[in-house]
Each structure stands twice: as C-alpha cells, then as structure tokens.
C-alpha cells in the first residue's frame, strides 16, 4: 500500500478478497487432484468413500497402486532418461552460446541471436512435426540411396530428446547468459596475469561463477522436459514417457491412480522449485 494515497476501507477489503479469490482459483485444481488420490473409490470424483493408501501401494486389480503399476513405473524411467539427456545437452549448448553471445564479436551476431530466440515463438506441436518430417525425410533418403536403416530417425526416444533439446536450450541460454553478463572480466584477467592458461582461467574462475545459473537452468530444463507434452506427442516412439502414458490413461477413463502419480509429481516439482529458489537467493550478485 502506498501510504500517502488514501483508499476507502470498502475498496481495500474488496481488493484483498479479489486477490484471495484469485489464489483459490490457482490452488483449486491442485488441491482437488491431491485430495482424490486418497479416495477409496474407483473414480476420482465425489462422493468421498473414506481414506485409503491403495492408490499408492495397492497390489491387486482394480485398485492397482502406483508403485505396483509396471507400465507407469517404466514410463517414469523413460521420462527420467529423456529429461537427463535433454538437460545435459541443453546445458552444454547453453554454456557455449552464453560465451558466444556475451564474449565474442562477429558479423551477423544480432541476426543469429534473434534466430536463437526463434524456438520461443514456434508452437511446440509445430516444432515437433517439423522435426518429425525432416528426420523421416533424411532416414528415407539414406534407406533409398544406401540401404541403411536409421531407426532412431523415426519416432523414438532419440527424436523426443532432440525435439525437447531444440527449444529447452534457448531457455537455458537465456538463464546462463544473464549470469555471465554479470561476471567481472577483471577476475579472469587476474588469473591470466597469474599465469593461468585461457582454459584454466575459465575452468577455475568463470565456470564456478556460473554454477548457480547452471544448476538453476538444469532444474528448469529437467522439469520442462519431464513435463513436456506437445513436442513429445509428435515424436514419441514405442516407449511412452510419463506424460504420454498419463494422457492415454486419461482418455480411457481416469482412476485415482492418476491422482497418486500427480501428487508425487507435485511433491517432486515443489522440492525442485524450492531448491531453485534457494539457489537464486544464494547467488549474491543476482
């Protein structure tokens, strides 16, 4: 409240209740999803039939719990694999890009920077299909001309990783660049004066400075990859990651086991969110 500006009591109360309503709107779907994970009913809906942990630990149909549900557990592993690969690739490219755009001068730099931002304005579905079509074209060409069968270029886990890497690396680049921009170059020069090689200086001085941004970008990219749907849907092969497996189940008709998975996802992403907020606080110059 700006103290010097008077507002009527009515105005203040109405305004505050609007904001409270807004937060209820934000929280409602999440609370509902979490709560129904414990409903002892075959459907995630009212009436409430008492609390149970069957949707987590149940070992028999029809109440097969999350931890006994092999297809779901397998899809979580697939998602983990995809998210780890995407994160590593994106961080490597993002670090290169940060040095490229913050340190180097070359003709066409602005144009290249704008092109680098393009994935942000391409809808995920289109990014997915364009990569699908392109890689299939390449695979077909190789098969026609050389008789090679490049299976990974057809819808597969590799393609999903590439498709997610295509747009997540842009976001990582923005995070890492923002941190590198704040780096005091004289620190690196001091290291060079003290006899360090160029690489030695970057390795011992600059990269540790970038660490908070790298961890933050890593968390963001891991979550974005784990939760991505649009691009993944177009590129997925026979091994469905978690979001795709959940989507298929939702279409068949949901059971509270989906609520149980969702609750676990919420807990995991809140933990990651808190870690990344703490990282933000720890890095002194940001």
């Amino acid at each position: 409240m700006i103290p010097s500006i008077p507002h009527s009591r009515l105005f203040r109360t109405t305004y505050a209740s609007y904001v409270v309503l807004f937060f209820l709107y934000l929280a409602a779907p999440l609370i509902v999803v979490g709560t129904f994970a414990f409903n002892d009913s075959l459907f995630p809906s009212l009436p409430w039939k008492g609390a149970t942990l069957d949707w987590f630990f149940g070992s028999e149909q029809p109440k097969l719990g999350l931890f006994q549900d092999d297809p779901i557990l397998k899809s979580i592993l697939v998602s983990f694999f995809i998210a780890s690969c995407t994160t590593v690739l994106s961080l490597l490219l993002a670090t290169c890009n940060a040095f490229l755009f913050e340190r180097e001068q070359f003709p066409g730099k602005n144009l290249l920077y704008i092109l680098m931002l393009m994935p942000l304005v391409i809808p995920g579905v289109i990014l997915g299909v364009s990569i699908l079509v392109f890689s299939s074209s390449i695979a077909n060409w190789f098969e026609m001309n050389f008789g090679w069968e490049l299976d990974f270029l057809y819808p597969s886990t590799t393609l999903v990783i590439l498709g997610q890497f295509a747009f997540i690396s842009t976001i990582c680049t923005l995070i890492v660049s923002a941190r590198l921009r704040k780096f005091d170059l004289s620190l690196e020069e001091a290291a060079l004066n003290l006899g360090a090689t160029k690489w030695g200086a970057i390795w011992t001085i600059t990269l540790p400075f970038l660490k908070p941004a790298l961890i933050g970008a890593g968390i963001v990219s891991f979550l974005m990859s784990f939760e991505n749907f649009n691009t993944t849907l177009m590129l997925v092969g026979s091994d469905a990651p978690l979001t795709i497996a959940m989507f298929d189940r939702l279409r068949e008709g949901a059971t509270p086991v989906l609520n149980a998975i969702s609750l676990m996802l919420m807990v995991a992403s809140s933990i990651l969110a808190i870690i990344s907020l703490l990282m933000d606080k720890k890095s002194p110059t940001t």
Binding site: L26, A27, A28, P29, L30, V32, V33, L223, F226, E227, F229, T243, M246, F247, L250, A254, L258, N259, S262, L265, M266, S269, S270, L272, A273
Partner: peptide, 12 residues
C-alpha cells in the same frame, strides 16, 4: 502451480 505439469493442472 506452474511448476506442476500442465497435464496435472488440466486433470484437476
């Protein structure tokens, strides 16, 4: 809420 997957929010 936006750290949570879009799928979960929509399911809610």
């Amino acid at each position: 809420p936006f750290w949570v997957s879009e799928l979960v929010r929509t399911y809610g």
